[in-house]
Design a protein around this nucleic acid. Structure first.
Lengths: 207, 207
DNA sequence: TCCTAAACGATACTGGAGTTCCGTTAGTCT
DNA sequence: AGACTAACGGAACTCCAGTATCGTTTAGGA
């Protein structure tokens, strides 16, 4: 792959360039959701996006790059966090949001595909890590508030608690083990709260 | 793909056939561990296994099939569970075993690859699910013993507790969020015990 | 030990993913 | 408005993963 001095789309990001990017990312999402990461080929994405095959190969080049860009695009659309006043309420809201996302036909398949891509490409893995860092940062404050209220022991690692809510849901999505229903989401939140109360997440990073 | 009436390797499983299977699975594991699921091609596996390319395509046909067979092979080698007498001790032992497996260069990469393959192929997903069912069944008894001892509330879903130990470790392996060190393993076990004590895993399936 | 055919493997072939070339379209700047 | 060139896109090409063919080896049974 001949590396261009400046990658396309940077010096003239407006108009057509932006339209092409949007169309390609949209089509890529569709294909990933329908067929999974393994059967994704850029030619088909180009066809669906009504865009020249050459363009897709020039701007993204590999499946991994395309997926990484898709992830970047997804990270920009943030869904606001709800505040219920109690830790269990907040984490349950988070767990249900995650569950709803993962069980949505398009989004769920997309996440599976993105995670699969990240297992064999370092740049995609990095993009994925950043995506979740952003998401987790949005929710961490509710844990810190709980610490301030005295619901949780001081020194509790807020981000670790948020991850603890998601972990069992992703586990079900990727390796199985029961339905990904609302009861599972509620249980994930409940378990995270119980573990945090018991001090299992003390001592980590930020408090 | 012309489906044969009887798939190769079933009517004459001895001698050469078995040697070929072992060599191919071994080579496949190496390639998966080194390059990941995305860049796996059967021709290279054949080359490494010192086996005809035709043979690999005839017996396995697709990457997903090969990975599923590899998984079947892995499921047969069971590592015995240790008994420490306390729930936290048992689950910590389990968490550390899982962590050691996932951080081992070959095994860890292999698990990543297998999970990635399962995201886009139903048969691989089914094989993966069975693999974990077996593993989890091996460890579930220690939770039931804890229930009998009165350490956990009656009605606790044993398999769900075991999954709760693994979930955060797999989450770290696949989507990131901190090092996969022994402290993380110990924390996973501690959190699972705390959540189980609080009754977060009551009401599920077997008790 | 000998026979049958299951399974292997070397070789040649094919289709399509990814690349290159070059002409066309249209964003951006003055 | 006009010039400049970034970015797009059609078409032809390359290369190799996956397939087909057919002869060779060897497992399993008599």
């Amino acid at each position: 792959m001949p590396v261009p001095e400046v990658e396309p789309g940077k010096t003239r990001p407006g108009g057509r360039t932006a339209r092409v990017r949007a169309a390609v990312l949209d089509a890529a999402g569709d294909v990933l959701a329908e067929q999974g990461f393994a059967h994704l080929d850029l030619a088909e994405v180009a066809r669906r996006a009504d865009v020249g095959k050459t363009t897709v190969y020039r701007r993204w080049g590999t499946v991994a790059n395309l997926v990484a860009d898709l992830l970047l695009d997804m990270a920009e659309q943030s869904s606001p966090r709800t505040e219920t006043g109690s830790l269990l309420g907040d984490l349950t809201a988070n767990a249900r949001l995650v569950r709803r996302t993962l069980t949505d036909p398009r989004q769920g398949a997309l996440f599976k595909a993105v995670i699969a891509a990240a297992t064999s490409d370092d740049r995609t893995a990095e993009a994925l890590r950043r995506f979740y860092d952003t998401r987790i940062d949005e929710w961490a404050p509710c844990v810190r508030q709980a610490v301030d209220r005295g619901e949780l022991p001081p020194g509790t690692d807020a981000r670790e608690v948020i991850r603890a809510v998601s972990a069992p849901l992703y586990y079900r999505l990727l390796v199985g083990g029961g339905a990904l229903d609302e009861a599972a989401a509620d249980r994930a939140a409940e378990a995270a709260v119980a573990a945090a109360r018991a001090g299992a997440y003390r001592g980590g990073g930020d408090g």
